[in-house]
Amino acid sequence: MIQLHNITKIYPNNVTALKNISLSIEKGEFVFIIGSSGSGKSTLLKLLLKEIEPTQGEIIINDKNITHLKKKEIPFLRRKLGVVFQDFRLLPNKTVYENVAFAMQIVEATPKEIRRNVPMVLSMVGLAKKARCYPNQLSGGEQQRTALARAIINNPPILICDEPTGNLDPVTSWEIMKLLKDINDRGTTVIIATHEKDIVDKMKKRVIEIKNGTLIRDLSKGGYSDED
């Protein structure tokens, strides 16, 4: 599903963020990417989202080489990748319903499909009753659920989460993780960048650790650190 071949990324200020990274993620996997701040995991996600281009190496998503994509094609790649951020990134002047419906309007879904799918996804993430609320009327957890609903509404094969629980308390974090697991159980490939030890340890999923731009560990059913 996702293949990185010898990826190196050197920023214009000569900082080497990633050094010769190769990895492969299969369809339906649940993967944690861990590492301290500045380790290069954000760079990795940015490469997948085509926010930046690699200095060297190849990226293949869904059997398509996306290493060098035309600017016009980027939106269509992103439609295959659901994204969730630490800071939620909801549109503040749209309701929960509108925020989610928005992702469908972009792919020019019919109003009928929107009316059918949005309530379905909202009830799946447990926000059916908050559909008319604006983001500033929601708790952090509810905002992240909205972001999740928006990320999966168009059934992307891959869901990328950048510190999805970074701004949430432990209880809420677990609710979000359960949701992510539910989404994964439905067949979506889930990639989570995090540095929350607790969660990684308990989930017992594949762990990829990056340190100073190099891949130092890739374990299935791993924990946050080697001792586990």
């Binding site: 939106p75 992103r78 994204v83 990134r89 992702a103 792919v107």
Partner: peptide, 8 residues
């Protein structure tokens, strides 16, 4: 945000 969702 629109760009991340895949808006042209």
């Amino acid at each position: 945000i629109m760009k991340y969702i895949g808006a042209t």
